[in-house]
Amino acid sequence: MSKHGKFSGNPKTEWLVDESGADRNMRLVEDFSYTDPDGRVWLAPLDSKINGASIPRPLWGTVGSPYTDDYRRASVVHDVACGDPTIPRKDADIMFYHACRAGGCSFLQAKLLYAGVRMGAWIDRSLAPNALSRDRLLFRVPFKLVADEQFVQDKFQELAIEVKLLRDDATIAELDAVIDKHLQF
């Protein structure tokens, strides 16, 4: 096992379409798991519903979208962990960082993705519900960010500048110090 853990393989999924016609969600058609560096197994069981990385939509152009790049497998176990009320969100986010590294993300990418999911947790606590709704972001012509979206992008850019300055082997505690400075958890 690598120092960042390992996956059980590749997740097997099927696309779901909800009543509104949205088709971002998927369902696991078999168990999938990630074993973290401490040996804890993070199970995403058969029939779990997932929707990709928990990156705030205004950051998709900066960080990446839910189903792209080397963090796709990490997003599966992160989605399931975030939906489990017995798992603290921060624990799920730390697991996501290591799973990103195990999936092939560089140190810089994993640090930025970790900052992105921590920002997602902060948004859930700090912004009004639906402040970053799907309709407001995708169906405006001409496209122009509204205040909350611009705020999120600006806040992430400030945070990312400092995160990028950290050593490649920065600890989670060092990452959290930068994140907490900008997000006030």
Rank of each mutant, 00 (worst) to 15 (best):
L112N: 01
I87F: 00
G103C: 09
D168I: 03
V146F: 13
P37L: 04
V117L: 05
Y67E: 01
L159D: 08
A131V: 01
L112G: 03
R72Q: 13
G52A: 11
G9L: 00
V178S: 10
Q157C: 14
A99Y: 02
K181T: 11
G52K: 02
D38Q: 15
D168H: 07
I172T: 02
R24Q: 11
I50E: 01
L16W: 01
A160H: 04
P88V: 11
K6D: 09
A99E: 09
D169F: 04
G9Y: 00
F143A: 12
A173G: 06
E30R: 11
N51K: 15
C105H: 14
F107W: 15
P45A: 01
A53Y: 09
V63E: 05
R89Y: 12
S126G: 06
L43C: 09
I179H: 11
G52I: 06
R89I: 12
N130R: 14
L43P: 09
P142W: 01
F7P: 05
Q157D: 15
I123H: 05
C100Q: 10
A121H: 11
D169T: 12
W42H: 00
A44C: 08
L166R: 10
V77G: 02
R167F: 09
D38C: 10
K90L: 10
P85G: 07
K144T: 04
L165F: 12
P142R: 05
S75D: 03
G116A: 15
D168F: 01
A115W: 00
A92F: 08
G52M: 01
K49I: 14
A99W: 02
T171W: 05
K12T: 11
L43T: 13
R101W: 10
G52E: 03
S126Y: 09
K181Q: 14
